[in-house]
Design a binder for these strands. Structure first.
Length: 546
RNA sequence: GGCCAGUUGGUGAAGUGGCUUAACACACUGCCCUUUCACGGCAGCAUUCAUGGAUUCGAAUUCCAUACUGGUCACCA
């Protein structure tokens, strides 16, 4: 009996050959240098920061070479899948404007893109390995394997199914048939030809050249449920989908020798590999991989709630991906991160630590460069979900709100007040009567109530004028001088003893009387937007209170 | 425990044998500008690249040990 007979015995219903599949999924006609990449998550839940970054990388490389970006769902572990997992992942990624050329929902010519729907393909490829003697059925039970492990531990030998421990390796056709007739459960294992004492040399796009011991383990290629584990599916899928660049988590690197043996057993052309370091986080003293369970900041919802723009998150990812991006972007702030040429070898070899401060800074700069209309629209979107009252308010006062957001904005050096959309309300509340109800006035140098009233009354009677900024400020100077304050800061600094205070103190009184805050953006703009009536109203109310 | 990788200021990092008296950015501090704040400008912030040896005229960069950190050793991905 030959290997071919064994293959037919194990896979009697598999009729297609691997050559048939080569024809169904022909090589892509691509220009030199074009990247076909993929993101291959398990449908275990919503996308979190780690995933988002892991998918950002292949997407960027595919886009910048006019290539193809594939989303493939690795659901071969039925235990971990959750309902709607696929839709959620796709929604989350599209939400970040990732362009996904081929995916389970929109399809593509190289599908199916869900691994459990590819069973018959895997069977054909497994059957092929059996037929050339590179795979065999194994009937060992879980108990057998546990015993094997304890024996190996006791003898201080390497753990695994290899060499003399690979009991089912040399089963005869008749023995296999007897097991099958008996209805015994089995898996298909690779018949490894590796030698643990020899090394393979592997070139990783990020880590460079790595030496690893050859694989000599007879790994499972088809589980007893008929579905392959990750490695086998990876080789078949990435080959058939004609992926050129495999980007995946760094933790796969130790199984590379096994993967290489599979690629070679099929005699497929290997893609290039880039093992990404996972996003890390500092947990007390230790640094560890960011975790969906332990870290609230791992969830993308954390950033949505805070109103951090998605674009800012992508800019942050871009700086993590290639640290020289940051410098380039400083010179090219009008451009998109898409215009930068990213490279694999610029990627960090140690896990990037997720830095919220840095993200917020990037976000602050990003928001400062938007137009008032863009900020308004984004603020509207954010508040619609997270602050309904504020949403209704800015809808009601649309143009007014835009003007507020525009204070010191569209200029060469715009203000950088907001690092997220959730910051805005607290900084502009005094512009809305509905929100303005101060219980604390941040008076500065001048705290005497009579003096405050004197300044305010004289200002409103004689000096109020917002026709243009020079006149406005000049009047405040005149007011200051009339009351014995220095109208010019230099004069005051040179001879402070000659004055009760300076124009700065007088301005502060006006500022606090109108907004209750000692720190605000340009007071002239604020007063113009509020208008004389509301200013008078606030001042009168203040007089009664103090 | 075996195997693999990493270790540069408070943080992210640049750096691939002489251009480094270690870039850039974040954070922080001080000064200047200034009606407040923010912006902006200037300055400060690692005599040192985990430790110890070796190679070299010369090392953060090469080699060897040690330490520490992370990853991995499944019919999980």
């Amino acid at each position: 009996m030959t290997n071919k007979d064994l293959a037919d015995l194990l896979f009697p219903n598999v009729t297609k050959t691997i050559e048939d599949y080569e024809k169904i999924y022909p090589e892509r006609q691509l220009k030199e240098g074009t990247i076909v990449s993929r993101f291959a998550p398990s449908p275990t839940g919503r996308v979190h920061m780690g995933n988002l970054f892991a998918s950002f990388v292949p997407e960027v490389f595919a886009r910048q070479t006019d290539g193809v970006f594939i989303l493939r769902i690795e659901d071969t572990d039925a235990k971990r899948a959750i309902e709607n997992g696929i839709e959620l992942i796709l929604d989350d990624l599209k939400n970040y404007n990732y362009k996904i050329d081929e995916n389970p929902i929109d399809g593509g010519n190289y599908g199916p893109y869900i691994q459990t729907e590819r069973k018959e393909i895997y069977d054909a490829f497994a059957k092929y390995l059996v037929s050339i003697g590179r795979a065999y059925p194994c009937f060992c039970s879980e108990e057998d394997l546990t015993n094997m492990r304890s024996e190996q531990e006791a003898k201080k030998e390497r753990i695994g199914y290899y060499g003399k421990y690979a009991k089912c390796r040399n089963l005869t056709y008749e023995e296999v048939k007897a097991h099958l007739d008996n209805g015994d459960k089995y898996v298909i294992r690779l018949r490894s030809q590796g030698d643990f004492n020899k090394k393979i040399i592997f070139k990783d796009l990020i880590k460079g050249t790595i030496e690893l011991p050859e694989n000599d383990l007879d790994q499972v290629i088809i589980k007893s449920d008929g579905i392959p584990p990750y490695a086998f599916a990876h080789v078949v899928d990435d080959h058939l989908m004609r992926v050129t660049h495999v980007t995946r988590d760094d933790s796969y690197i130790s199984s590379v020798p096994y993967h290489m043996e599979l690629w070679e057993a099929f005699n497929f052309k290997k893609p290039k590999f880039a093992h990404l370091l996972p996003l890390c986080i500092k947990d007390g003293e230790t640094v560890r991989k960011i975790s969906k369970r332990k870290d609230p900041e791992a969830a993308v919802s954390f950033y949505h709630e805070r109103g951090i723009p998605k674009e800012a998150i992508k800019l942050y990812f871009a700086t993590l991906l290639n640290s020289n991006f940051e410098e380039w972007y400083l010179q090219n702030q009008d451009k998109s991160y898409r215009d930068f040429t990213f490279t694999f070898n610029k990627m960090s070899k140690s896990g990037p630590l997720f830095d919220l401060d840095k993200l917020l800074n990037i976000s602050r700069n990003y928001i400062s460069r938007l137009t008032k209309d863009e900020v308004y629209d984004d603020l509207l979107t954010w508040s619609n979900t997270y602050d309904k009252d504020f949403y209704n308010l800015i809808i009601k006062y649309k143009e007014y709100t835009k003007n507020i957001l525009n204070i010191e904005r569209q200029q060469k050096k715009p203000r950088k007040d907001y690092s997220s959309y959730s910051d805005i309300k607290d900084q502009v509340f005094y512009m809305y009567d509905e929100l303005y109800n101060p219980d604390n006035y941040e008076w500065g140098q001048i705290t005497d109530k009579k003096e405050i009233n004197t300044i305010l009354n004289l200002y409103m009677e004689k000096y109020y004028d917002v026709s243009d900024k020079d006149t406005w400020f000049n009047n405040i100077k005149l007011l200051s001088e009339e009351l014995g304050y220095a109208g010019n800061m230099k004069d005051y600094k040179n001879n402070p003893e000659n004055y009760k205070g300076s124009v700065a103190d007088v301005s502060t009184v006006l500022r606090v009387a109108i907004t209750s805050k000692s720190m605000t953006p340009d007071l002239y703009e604020i007063m113009r937007l509020l208008g004389k009536d509301r200013i008078e109203e606030r001042i009168k109310k203040l007089e009664k209170e103090i």
